[in-house]
């Protein structure tokens, strides 16, 4: 659901990085003939669809470790070039997972306090340098607490980096004024979205309800 909606943010010919988790599912919703180049921080530009069982290559995977294929025009490179592309602004869109996002577009996605420390990985560089950064995440935590908040309480990955938030409940743009609610996803209601969000939401005049 989230991945299908996220795929609508991709346009033909873009270079796109998909982070670990929900973002990895987005490839399945992007038509092959759009010539989108999926970038992977383990040193691959041009990741293709997931291979069928028995056709995996041991050294061909996404950054998250899932088996991968290549599209025509794909290339391999070392990690400094993988990040050089990011820093140089060559990526049109980065889609990343999140633990908390603030109304100012700050992102926290690398420490679960008292439970797990994953390490910051490449999230900060993607979040800072991709032209457009989209967070794909569940709207609330497993305990039912809002992940979209006034101020992040978890250690930050990067500040002022998020452009769009897509959850199973809603789509929100990060604007100068704060969070702008543009879409409510079926079967959720506007009231449920507001009730499960820990930051003020401005309601778009073109608010849509999406199946």
């Amino acid at each position: 659901m989230i991945a299908r909606r996220a795929a609508r943010e991709i346009r033909p010919g873009m270079a796109v990085n998909l982070g670990i988790g929900i973002p990895e599912l987005v490839t399945d919703f992007v038509p092959n003939d759009w010539n989108v180049m999926f970038h992977s921080v383990n040193g691959i530009l041009g990741i293709g669809p997931t291979p069928s069982k028995g056709h995996e290559h041991p050294y061909l995977s996404s950054a998250g470790g899932s088996p991968a294929t290549l599209v025509p025009g794909a290339s391999f490179f070392d990690s400094t070039i993988a990040y050089g592309m990011i820093r140089r602004g060559k990526l049109d869109v980065a889609m990343i997972g999140g633990l908390q996002v603030s109304r100012k577009g700050h992102l926290a996605n690398w420490v679960v306090p008292g439970k797990r420390v994953y390490g910051i990985g490449g999230g900060a560089e993607l979040a800072l340098y991709a032209k457009r950064v989209i967070v794909l995440m569940s709207h609330v935590t497993e305990a039912g607490e809002p992940k979209i908040v006034k101020e992040c309480t978890l250690p930050l990955t990067a500040k002022n980096c998020i452009d769009l938030i897509i959850t199973e409940m809603a789509v929100m743009e990060v604007t100068e004024e704060g969070l702008l609610l543009t879409e409510v996803m079926y079967p959720y209601t506007l009231e449920e979205v507001i009730g499960n969000t820990g930051a003020p939401l401005y309601i778009s005049e073109q608010l849509q309800t999406v199946d």
Partner: peptide
């Protein structure tokens, strides 16, 4: 990143492994 190795996380929490994180790039 140590997310794929829970044992590394455990040793870090117990103070047996000194981990210094850097952003990947």
């Amino acid at each position: 990143h140590i997310g794929s190795n829970p044992e590394a996380g455990r040793q870090m929490m117990e103070g047996r492994l000194d981990v210094r994180f850097y952003s990947q790039g």
